[in-house]
Structures are given as structure tokens and as C-alpha cells.
Amino acid sequence: MILIVNGPNLNMLGKRPKEIYGNFSYQDLLKLIEDWSEKNKIKTEVFQSNFEGEIINRLQKMDFDGLIINAGAYTHYSYAIKDALEIIDVPKIELHISNIYKREEFRKKSVIAPVCDGQITGLGLDGYILALEYLKKIIGKR
């Protein structure tokens, strides 16, 4: 199973600045992932929370074979999420819908990047599909 964790404010896609996040809604993202899962016959779970502790609690269940995490603003300062990710021994992809390197200075630093296997940034919802395809390939080799 591939777990997709979305952090704070990602549930507000469609209401956030369209020039940064695009015109799609959170429901569009969920549908995209659901369609991919059905087509590829791979179980996925999407978890979203605006609360750091809930994200950590979900990660600590460690009941998944691969992880995609869009930690939102927690990317830039949550050492607690970084520490939780560090002990998880599955392939982990950090993902951002917008290009964090073209945004405010504080967004250019990811404290979780060093404990993830890779990072996808700035490709919109397509980034989720790329991450899913990568994990499908990697998990299949295990």
C-alpha cells in the first residue's frame, strides 16, 4: 500500500491562489489518485491533516510500503515530522505542487528532504502521478 500524506491547507486546493496551486480542487486530486490506483491495481490511502501531531501519528503506524508526503508549510520547519520520517524504512518521496524554489525565501529550505529518497516540486498534480509511478517501480523490486 502506498500512503499519500498531505499537510496543512492542502484540503483547500481550489480556494488557494490559482497562480501558485492551479485551478484544481482537493477532490480533483483525490479522484486522480483513485483513478491511478484502480488502473494500476495498487492500494493507496490518502491522509490529510492540518495538525502536525496527527500527521506524525499516521506516519508512526508504519503500515505502508511506500510514502508520498506533501507536508505543506511543515516542510520548512517541522523537525518532529522529519524525525518521524527518519525512522520509516520504506521509499519516501517529498512532493510539492508548486515550485518551492521560486517562492518566498523560507520555502526554499526543506527540513524533511534529507530523510526522503527524492523530491518532486513544481509539477502540479502530475507530481503525484510521477511519485506513484516511481514507488510502483521501486516497491515491485523489493
Rank of each mutant, 00 (worst) to 15 (best):
L3E: 06
L3F: 05
I4G: 04
N6A: 11
G7A: 02
P8T: 15
N9C: 08
N9P: 14
N9K: 04
L10Q: 04
N11D: 10
N11W: 00
N11S: 03
N11Y: 03
M12F: 10
L13W: 01
G14M: 03
G14K: 02
G14R: 03
K15N: 14
R16E: 09
R16T: 03
P17E: 10
E19T: 07
E19F: 14
Y21P: 06
N23T: 06
F24G: 11
F24K: 14
Y26P: 01
Y26M: 03
L29T: 11
K31M: 09
K31Q: 07
K31S: 14
L32Y: 07
E34F: 11
E34P: 13
D35Y: 11
W36I: 10
E38R: 15
K39T: 01
K41Q: 10
K41N: 10
I42A: 15
I42D: 09
F47I: 01
F47N: 02
Q48V: 03
S49Y: 00
N50G: 14
N50V: 06
F51D: 08
F51K: 12
G53R: 03
G53K: 12
E54C: 06
E54Q: 09
I55S: 08
I56E: 05
N57D: 15
N57L: 07
L59M: 05
L59V: 04
L59N: 02
Q60K: 12
Q60I: 07
K61S: 13
M62Q: 08
D63E: 14
D63Y: 06
F64G: 08
D65F: 00
L67W: 00
L67Y: 02
I68K: 06
I69S: 07
N70G: 06
N70I: 00
A73G: 10
Y74N: 01
Y74V: 02
T75N: 15
H76E: 14
H76P: 08
Y77K: 07
S78L: 15
Y79T: 00
Y79P: 00
Y79C: 11
Y79L: 14
A80R: 13
I81L: 05
I81Y: 05
K82C: 09
K82W: 01
D83K: 02
D83A: 06
A84Y: 06
A84H: 05
L85V: 00
L85I: 08
E86S: 09
I87D: 11
D89S: 11
V90E: 11
V90K: 10
P91I: 04
K92N: 02
I93M: 09
I93Y: 00
I93H: 04
E94W: 01
L95F: 03
H96Q: 07
I97M: 02
I97Y: 01
S98M: 15
I100M: 07
I100S: 07
Y101T: 12
R103P: 05
E104V: 03
E105T: 02
R107E: 01
K109G: 07
S110N: 13
S110C: 03
V111P: 03
V111M: 05
A113S: 13
V115W: 13
C116P: 05
D117N: 06
G118N: 10
T121K: 04
T121C: 13
G122M: 01
L123P: 02
G124I: 05
G124W: 12
L125G: 03
Y128D: 10
Y128K: 11
I129P: 03
L130C: 06
L130E: 08
A131M: 12
Y134A: 15
Y134S: 13
L135P: 07
K136S: 12
K137M: 11
K137C: 13
I138W: 13
I138S: 11
I138A: 06
G140H: 08
